[in-house]
Amino acid sequence: MDKTTLLEWYRQMVLIRRFEERSDELYQLEGKIKGFLHLYIGQEAVAVGTIAARDPERDHLITAYRDHGHALAVGLEAGAVMAELMGKATGVVGGRGGSMHLASKEKKFWGGYGIVGAHLTLGTGMALAEQYKGSGGVCLCYFGDGATNIGYFHESLNMAGVWGLPIVFICENNKYGMGTAVDRASANPNLADKAKAYNIPAKKIDGMNIVEVYKATQKAIDACRKGKGPQFLEMVTYRYEGHSIGDRTRYRPAGELDKWRDEKDPIATLQKVLLEEYEASEAELVAIDDVVMKEIDDAVTFANESPLPAPETLFDHIYPA
């Protein structure tokens, strides 16, 4: 990996983290954000590392409701994402979707979805469209550990397997489906095994290490592109915050979060690599942090100053044009 790439990944991960921290404040302290807010803090390496491995011209992306990280990693403006969280007309989907439903057709980012597991079928369909058209695109389909217990998951993996569809199923195993730990919800807590049941090659990856995430994703996309059918990556990661705002995470054993944060944090891990193996300086990283902080400040200002959707647009887009 070259240093410029790693510095860019560092910037993106810091951007996501600062964005999420600010969103949390805007929700809890200022009341500017309402509804659900699922923060991505702790999981940044997964979105950034996987998205770095895709071909933005032809590969699709679809994810669940914890989608801010993916939206920022595909390059959506922080201001437009923040405006969406505030329900503004300038938001990425005009204030119609909110936190859970960010999307961009231009970026082939088909959205965040709020019903656990449902979008796996949509992703399977996108891979089907690619195979049908023979255009060589691959679908990256993200979901949490909790989704591996729902029927949608099993039907999607089975169909993708039967038809050999170009889809990479990316399971972000952050240890909890809402408040229920993986081993309390899944008869087989080794989630990669579930893919193997459908003859889908599966790998368990350290989702806190962005370089490993990137390399594994690159291989999986490559296999899809070569017509080898669906691939499955279990990204082992950790959600620092609650499931959504208002979750005090009482279900977590004492010390568990601290252990992950102190020993495995994805940003600190990359920072260490940059400083020790790539001769990056502290000043270089601080400069990036400063640029990101400015970007977040500008994003919040933009969102604050943006207009609300016009009432007369209420009935727009019920049906496509």
Binding site: W110, H119, T124, G125, M126, S156
Partner: peptide, 13 residues
């Protein structure tokens, strides 16, 4: 579930 959902995804794409 996947007949309907995959048809939706394929239609979107």
């Amino acid at each position: 579930m996947v007949i309907a959902g995959a048809a939706v995804g394929a239609a979107m794409a």
